[in-house]
Every structure is written in C-alpha cells, then in structure tokens.
C-alpha cells in the first residue's frame, strides 16, 4: 500500500505540472485553455520528432523546447487569444476547443494513432532503493522534484517580482493596470508564454515517463482541471496538493482494479466539488 501511495504522489508530480499551466492562464486572464492537453501531447511529439530527426540528447531537446514554447505562447496569445478576451467566455472556449480538434487530427495525420515515447536510455529503468522492498524510479523522482521547483518558482514569481505584480495587477483590475502604464495585452502574452513553457515541460516529461498518442490530450486536460479544483483555485501550492490527491487516488484505484483507476479519480473530484467547492486547500486571506 505504501508503495502505491508513493507511486501516486510521484504521478501527482506530473499532474501538478499539467495543472500549473491551466492555473496560470486562468489566474491571470480568466482564460480557460481547453487545448491544454493537446498542447502537452504535441510538445511530446515535437520532442520525439527532434530526437528522431536531429538525433539530439533528451536534455538538449528539453532546453530547446522551452524557448520555442515561450515564443509560440507569446504569439498565440498576442495574435489570437487577445482578440477573444471579453466578459463572455464563449469565443475563447470555442477557439481553444477548435484548436484542440485541429491538433489532435494533425497529429493523427502526421504520426498515426500509435503511442510513441521519448527514448531516455537507462534512465527509464534506473531506480533508487528506499528500503529492501521499496524502489522508486529516478525519472518519476526527477519529475516530482521539478513539480516542486515549478510550484515554488511560480509562487515566488507572483509574490516577489515585477512580472508577478503585473500579472496580479491585470488580473485585479485591467483598466487601472493600464492607467499605471502596463500594456495588458503584453502582460497576457507573457503569461501565456510562461504557461506554454510549463506545457512543453509537461509534454517532455510525459513523453519520457510513458507514451503520447494523438487522442490522449482531453484526459490530460481533465486531470489538470481536477487537480486545480481539488486543490482550490488561486493558490499554486493548493494546485500542487490537489495534484497529489488526484495522483494518489488514481493509483489506489488502479491498484484495486485497473479499469476503475481514472473513474476513481473523477469520483474524488466530484465529491470534493460537491462538499468543498472551494477546494481542499483554499487560499486564506491576509
């Protein structure tokens, strides 16, 4: 059982990185990115493509992926999503939902339906022995530590930097923020650029840890969303803990019956939504 829980926490690390991207965009501009899961998957495929075509080492691919992601996010927000922002959530939802369909089918066409993965050599089997009966994989551990670093980094960015303040300012009151000299559209583009870095990181890890296939996107979006709601909106550490709860629940579910693992995760989400709509770890004021 202990092993299942530890596996669940490590899985939660991956979900946390999914969820931070969603949380960041929603927090700064109340924008729901329905294509998040598909963007994670396409990042995984791009990484695999670079590995096959360019023959780069996995680490180099990751480093190359981040600036590409930032620029695409910045441009996507600046050219497309900024045009959809209003009180009405419909246009941005339709645009990201449409993008989700476009990405899925494009990947289907280019790579086919088969799942693929990013070759990490001996790292995929490397393990750390915690006790004679308990070994955890090095790769999941790296992902988990990255999740902590990302959560801490985002929290720090929001609380203590000028970029973070500008994010909070446009989210609090866009009009007044512009009176101070900020360009809200630029701030939004920066936020999405950053969110795309998290998405690319998530796709890179997903490709290394398991497999990616073109139709996987929606379920990743749902996991990310569940982690955000379970943890409680508005706090990155809440999202982190929410992801842990989701990961553990799914893993326990899988342990009990492989057919019910995901369902079990959904169930916990529904119970939390029903009993504590503000999440298990809501942000406390003051």
């Amino acid at each position: 059982m202990l092993e299942t829980i530890i596996q669940g926490i490590l899985l939660g690390g991956l979900y946390c990185i999914f969820a931070l991207g969603l949380s960041l965009m929603f927090g700064v501009m109340r924008l729901t990115n329905i294509a998040l899961g598909d963007q994670i998957i396409i990042s995984g495929f791009i990484a695999i493509g670079m590995a096959t075509v360019l023959g780069f080492n996995v680490l180099w691919i990751g480093l190359l992926l981040l600036p590409i992601a930032y620029i695409s996010g910045f441009c996507f927000q600046g050219w497309v999503l900024n045009r959809t922002l209003s009180k009405d959530p419909l246009p941005s939802l339709v645009v990201t939902f449409g993008l989700s369909i476009v990405i899925q089918n494009t990947l289907q066409m280019v790579f086919g339906a088969n799942p693929r993965s990013l070759d990490v050599g001996s790292l995929s089997t490397a393990g750390v022995e915690l006790s004679p009966s308990l070994t955890v994989g090095v790769l999941p551990l790296i992902i988990f530590v990255s999740a902590i670093v990302c959560t801490f980094g985002l929290q720090w960015l929001f609380a203590h930097t000028a970029i973070g303040r500008s994010f909070r300012a446009v989210s609090d009151d866009r009009e007044v923020a512009e009176l101070m000299g900020l360009s809200a559209k630029r701030v939004f583009a920066t936020a999405t650029g950053l969110a795309f870095c998290l998405i690319a990181l998530a796709g890179w890890f997903q490709g290394m840890r398991t497999t990616v296939s073109p139709s996987d996107g929606p379920s990743l979006l749902l996991f990310a969303f569940e982690a955000v709601i379970i943890g409680g909106m508005g706090s990155f550490w809440g999202t982190f803990l929410g992801a842990m709860v989701l990961g553990v629940t799914q893993q326990v579910g899988f342990h009990y019956d492989p057919g019910w693992g995901i369902w079990f995760g959904h169930l916990v989400f529904i119970v939390v939504l029903f009993i504590k709509p503000n999440g298990l770890f809501p942000k406390t004021k003051g």
Binding site: R168, D172, A177, G181
Partner: peptide, 19 residues
C-alpha cells in the same frame, strides 16, 4: 479608489511607479 486587492500598500505604490 480601485486599489489592487491582491497587493499590499507598498506593492500598490510600486505599481504606480511602473512608468
């Protein structure tokens, strides 16, 4: 007034100096 509710007094002032 429309102060930024997520910010402290000092942070609000810092936003004012953004330009």
């Amino acid at each position: 007034r429309r102060l930024f509710p997520s910010m402290t007094v000092e942070e609000n002032l810092m936003m004012g100096g953004y330009s």
